[in-house]
Design a protein around this nucleic acid. Structure first.
Lengths: 256, 256
DNA sequence: CTTGACCTTGCCCCTAGGGCAATGTCGCAC
DNA sequence: GTGCGACATTGCCCTAGGGGCAAGGTCAAG
């Protein structure tokens, strides 16, 4: 008869594995010899090979234990396991495909149409710096307001088809490099506020949802350059004068 | 800015997962707001997506942490991971193939030639009972003496090509159903011992290695029927008389 | 003011075993 | 009979990648 080591070596597992299977009730404890060693018959080999085959297929041991009753439900279970394997193979292939995209730098975090929109911005004259900021902005908008984000994005994308609005955005982009005291910032702020009122009235889309979005924009801009910080400040004061419903958060909880 | 829940939902993981990644140093701890909540920027989303992509590919978290230094060694690592994925897909497909064999009952525990030998026995007139016994026997021989087993098996397979020997084995098979007192058993034992001496002299192959194999045969036979038990007993006493080197184990350590 | 949905940390649980310790046993060599 | 190396026994702690719960703090709404 076989010792635990012989059994384990023949099937290609460790003795520990065999003991674990005993402890979990997968493999019945065999008789012990006079010194307390386990002694296995050939049946144990067959059973252990069966268990290993299923375990290699990723079947949890607890499920393997439940498995062995009637032949038809065993066949059923085997079919399920087979289907699970097929699914896992497909999943791994998908992962591999995505991983290759990651290696190629084509990582996709935003919806495809947003990525396309961002990809089209350089041709319109926007700086990489502005595009990066917009990208971060959309990531956070989609994360915080998945329901509103598409609407907001459609509006934004559509507004760039208007040459006047597009020029305003371009001007805001390049305001990054302006001195905070440059009077051009004042003029730009006036034009932006006027265009906003013309487009939205005093109730911009999403403003009733959460102050996080304008706040976020503010913080992103402020952190980037003194020029943008000044521009943002000017826009806010002018919008408040115009009766815009911008609930400003006054606490320090959104610093960063 | 994002709370941990928003970040987790957007990327499709649990908040616990994000905290684990902080604890393991995979994702830097973000700033806290005034109430101690973590506040994430868009960078964290990008980083978390990257981590999840690698983790989904089965890369251990500890390795993901080491990963991000220079671009060329990152590309190298990605290629290794890709190769690992390919290997795992292949492994799963192999598993699936073996599992289907298991479902079809074509499970392979013994070497292919032994299985073929066993598969040929019914056509020679052996009973299923005998074949099952021989199968168990070979499993244990291959497990306990992988070095000798092939030699022993070749000898056994070759001996069946001799019609006289084959008839002896067939007679032993059918002795299962004989009464222990049947005189045919005595005659059969005599013929078996004579044939053994003619084939091997008094030193059968493997007998110098371990008493386990004849013991095993003995126990298997004895457990099966009174007829076989009597036959075994007769053979042993005659072989001992003939000076056969059968070291009999007298202790009780191989019961079962 | 309460309620429910969040967030915080800390703790134990899981799988499928690996690895170690302390101890007992086997078979071989001296 | 003594020693040695290989093997066996049980029990305990460890791993990765979280899950789930407890006990508490926070936030916005009714």
């Amino acid at each position: 008869m076989l010792t635990i080591g012989q059994l384990a070596r023949y099937v290609g597992v460790s003795t520990k594995t065999v003991r674990v299977y005993h402890a979990k009730g997968l493999l019945p404890e065999p008789e012990r010899d006079s010194s307390g060693y386990r002694r296995y018959s050939a049946d144990a080999v067959v059973e252990l090979v069966r268990i290993r085959m299923l375990a290699d297929a990723g079947v949890p041991l607890a499920r393997i234990r439940e498995l062995g009753s009637t032949p038809e439900e065993l066949a059923d279970a085997l079919q399920q396991i087979d289907a699970g394997l097929t699914a896992r193979i497909k999943g791994l292939r998908d992962t591999q495909r995505r991983l290759r995209k990651l290696a190629a730098g084509e990582i996709r975090i935003l919806p495809a149409n947003v990525e396309e929109h961002l990809a089209g911005l350089p041709a319109l004259g926007f700086t990489d710096r502005w595009i990066a900021m917009e990208r971060d902005l959309w990531i956070i908008v989609y994360a915080t307001h998945p329901d509103l984000a598409d609407t907001l994005f459609q509006d934004q994308a559509q507004s760039l088809t208007d040459p006047d609005l597009r020029n305003l955005y371009l001007a805001a982009d390049h305001a990054h490099d302006l001195d905070p005291d440059d009077p051009a910032l004042i003029e730009l702020a006036d034009r932006i506020v006027a265009a906003s009122i013309q487009r939205y009235g005093t109730e911009p889309p999403g403003s009733d949802a959460d102050p996080a979005i304008p706040d976020l924009l503010q913080n992103t801009l402020n952190a980037a350059s003194p020029g943008w910080q000044r521009l943002d400040s000017l826009i806010r004061s002018r919008m408040a004068d115009a009766g815009f419903t911008l609930r400003t958060t006054s606490d320090d909880s959104h610093d960063g």
